[in-house]
Design a binder for these strands. Structure first.
Lengths: 239, 239
DNA sequence: TTCGCAGGTAGACACTTGTATACTTCTGAA
DNA sequence: TTCAGAAGTATACAAGTGTCTACCTGCGAA
């Protein structure tokens, strides 16, 4: 990978979206969650990975999975909505930590874009619960959760775009366009992440497909302002 | 729109995905559903549009909304899973009808791509229940429903791609690439459709964004095989 | 006219759910 | 050491759920 020193033109490190961390959804300290509260949140993540969706989790189900008395729930949360939001916070913390790590990593070694894609998907694979809950609730029935998640994704997209801009990874594309493509990319990757987790045999092809997606977006953006006539002309020169 | 006779280069009629029909989720005849069965399915669609997700609907809830005795449910469906599948079939029927109509329409008048995008989003707006259930269950907890929906989407993508190929709407892009872009596009549009429905003020910008997405995909595909060096060279000529 | 049977209803079953009140245990500061 | 408050438990209740068996209705074929 020494071939690509400063390969602008297409995104590398395209997604700060939901990056990685060595040991994910287990022992966390910064979140100031302990004891029963922590047990309940972790129980939720466990249940979500198996079958359920966050919004559909029941109070007693949670307590059962956590090995606690149902009423303990009320010691920590007012109701299930508040619980959902806290789970989201818990996950967001994880994501941010991953972003920081990815940033450091990319700063030290100039990665090729496909390595970064691999990296991000690896994160999803290591954090299936966080991934699943994000995908499910982004279009789920609870407006509160949807809104919270969208804010989180947009923040990630903004970081990704600013990083691309700062490090001049893409040339010839307007800043606003880079922001837009970042938003689209992050959402696209998030959705593909579900397939990536669930279908081990397709993982490689999903990665490649994602790289093509990103490259096409940024390369296509180069031609944004071309008239159809000019474009046709260009095609003939390419063939 | 007389300016664009045969505007290849970018997709118009990009999405057969989930097109329209004048009066959507109401009086249907082809589906051979009548009486109580129909009432239950329609009740489901009603509930889904409001708050719920298909997987989380209860048998009694359904019957209540439909104005029927809970046990009537068992006269028509073995269990809730089978019910879910039938609802999906019901919706799929709708989509296919829309596809046919869109095909006719596009054949008669050479549309610009942005008109087609508007058309498709209009369909979503007219069929909020079908749209919502598709988005929610595509990543939902039920594997059966997920699989059924994916098949449905892939079929739509295939139709879209074949149509683009037959009518030579895009030049200089490999057939397989067109298929791939079609799949990506259909999924992208489906997700955006939720925002389109829920956020009236953003509708116009969502449409435009979608057009840009599609154009960039196809235009970027033109440059798929270019080396970074060649690409850099190209950028300088464009500036 | 009778019969079969699909469609719809009624009541009951065991079970789960969210929530409230009251009781116990643990823990850390005064 | 005491004691307040946090964390956890026990019991109870009304309401909701899926499913079973049994009964009633209307209608087309025999």
């Amino acid at each position: 990978m020494a071939e690509s020193k400063r390969t602008w033109m297409y995104s590398q490190r395209f997604s700060e979206a939901l990056p990685t961390r060595p040991f994910p959804e287990a022992e966390r300290s910064m979140n100031l969650m302990t004891g029963g509260k922590l047990k309940l949140v972790q129980a939720a993540l466990r249940l979500i990975t198996e079958t359920r969706s966050l919004t559909s989790l029941g109070l007693r189900e949670l307590a059962r999975e956590a090995g606690l008395n149902p009423n303990t729930f009320y010691r920590h949360f007012k109701n299930l909505d508040e619980f959902g939001l806290q789970v989201l916070d818990y996950i967001a913390e994880d994501m941010k930590a991953g972003v920081r790590q990815l940033r450091q990593m990319a700063a030290s070694s100039e990665q090729a874009s496909h390595e970064t894609v691999a990296f991000v998907y690896h994160y999803f694979l290591a954090n299936p619960a966080a991934t699943t809950v994000a995908v499910r609730e982004l279009h789920g029935p609870s407006a509160v959760l949807r809104q919270a998640l969208e804010a989180q994704l947009d923040a990630s997209a903004r970081e990704m775009a600013e990083d691309i801009l700062e490090r001049r990874l893409v040339a010839g594309v307007a800043a606003e366009t880079i922001h837009e493509i970042s938003r689209m990319t992050i959402r696209y990757i998030l959705f593909r992440a579900m397939d990536y987790i669930e279908k081990p045999h397709q993982r490689e092809s999903i990665q490649q497909e994602t790289e093509r997606f990103i490259n096409r977006q940024f390369r296509g953006a180069l031609l944004d302002d071309l008239s159809p006539a000019r474009l046709e002309q260009l095609v003939t020169t390419l063939v």
